[in-house]
Design a protein around this nucleic acid. Structure first.
Lengths: 221, 221
DNA sequence: AATTGTGAAATTGTTCACAGCA
DNA sequence: TGCTGTGAACAATTTCACAATT
């Protein structure tokens, strides 16, 4: 009854549920393009190798989106998931590191399509500063703090060598940044109120390696 | 007692345990370089933001590696984890797609350091075929099947647009490939005996976006 | 005294199964 | 009849707590 009594779902929702929401969103975007008006939990689940019960349970954490007997309205559900995921808007992004990964990300169309706008790419190497990549000019890392503010950067992508990552992350945090996507193979230590996700590509290859060695069936079975 | 009665741990080991093994491996590599001889579960856990009990439990699935009262021998444990993860050897890798991500991966040093040797990079665009990237010349995708065999490729990395991914994956599987790392934002459908991992960079950004919108604390707390 | 290895307890996440509704 | 929404059952994972060991 007090103002604070409003629904405070977020917080107890699991990481895996949010990740699946991304998958549902992706499948719904495809469905919307085909013009299909409604989709059952069964169909939606099948498109991402999940179970129908999982789909219904995940969605139920956030509200009631479907019609019993019919299914979910494709366009409407997609829009509502966009809202929940916070991608019904644009986000200003900066990339730190103009090496292989950093420059690849700048030209990666998927990001722009999802509303993640890369506004700046930084490097500390004078030979890289000034170079062009996909319409952006590499800025000197010395300008980091001032540019984060002037460009209203909300998310920073770290794509520098492992040893350079923590000091840069610290600088971003001191400048008030609240979200980091880290591609450096290192465990960043940050205050609790800063959101951090780490992409560990070696980990994925090592998982494949483990599976090949330990779980591969012999040629005949 | 029968030959088949040998330890069959692998299979019931969870995905999360294997991923953490990668983290332990990484931390141990750093520790080994500093010359530290032993490490406690507490220290090791702290380096990757995990709990000491988690470390001990994970390791206990694979054997007894530590000494009560002392801790774990750094170099020895690192070597044993390398064995378990299947990275105490090299793997032959091919990259499909010479776009931004594909070419970035070819020059990514972390992979070579871990024993993942990129032997070929393919593209279907005649304008890209023949170009050089980090010591490799882009091959025509028409040569895929023959090169997979002649180069003894064991892992394929897919870095092509979503719509091209499934047909290419099918070609690889028909050629006998058993492991795929997929960067295309699509759910690949493959036979059960093929190992598949998918890197979904948009998902990670969407997770950050979700957290910023739903969990960010107001400025004053 | 310190630290592992591990059953048991607690917690978290998934699936079931069916009431409720179109 | 078909399909959602959901509490309850089940399964998986993590944490606890302590005996065992150096």
């Amino acid at each position: 009854m007090t103002p604070k009594a409003r629904v405070r779902t977020a917080g107890r929702i699991s990481e895996s549920t949010i990740k699946r929401l991304s998958l549902y969103y992706r499948a719904l975007s495809v469905l919307e393009q085909t013009g299909q008006g409604t989709v059952s939990s069964q169909d939606l689940a099948g498109r991402e190798d999940l179970s129908p019960a999982q789909v219904r349970k995940d969605l139920s954490f956030f509200g009631t989106f479907g019609t019993r007997g019919l299914g979910y309205p494709v366009g409407e559900l997609r829009a509502k998931l966009a809202r929940i995921l916070g991608i019904d808007r644009t986000w200003n992004v900066a990339v730190l590191g103009a090496g292989n990964i950093g420059t690849a990300l700048v030209s990666y169309r998927e990001f722009k399509n999802q509303g993640f706008l890369i506004k700046r790419i930084f490097d500390s190497d004078p030979r890289k500063v000034g170079a062009r990549h996909g319409g952006l000019v590499v800025s000197d890392i010395a300008r980091l703090e001032s540019d984060l503010v002037s460009e209203r950067i909300e998310i920073v992508v770290i794509a520098v060598p492992a040893e350079a990552a923590q000091p840069l992350a610290d600088r971003c945090v001191r400048a008030g940044l609240k979200a980091i996507l880290n591609f450096a193979p290192v465990n960043l230590v940050l205050p609790d109120d800063v959101c951090l996700r780490t992409e560990n590509m070696s980990m994925e290859l090592e998982y494949l390696s483990y599976t090949l060695v330990n779980c591969a069936l012999p040629p005949q079975g």
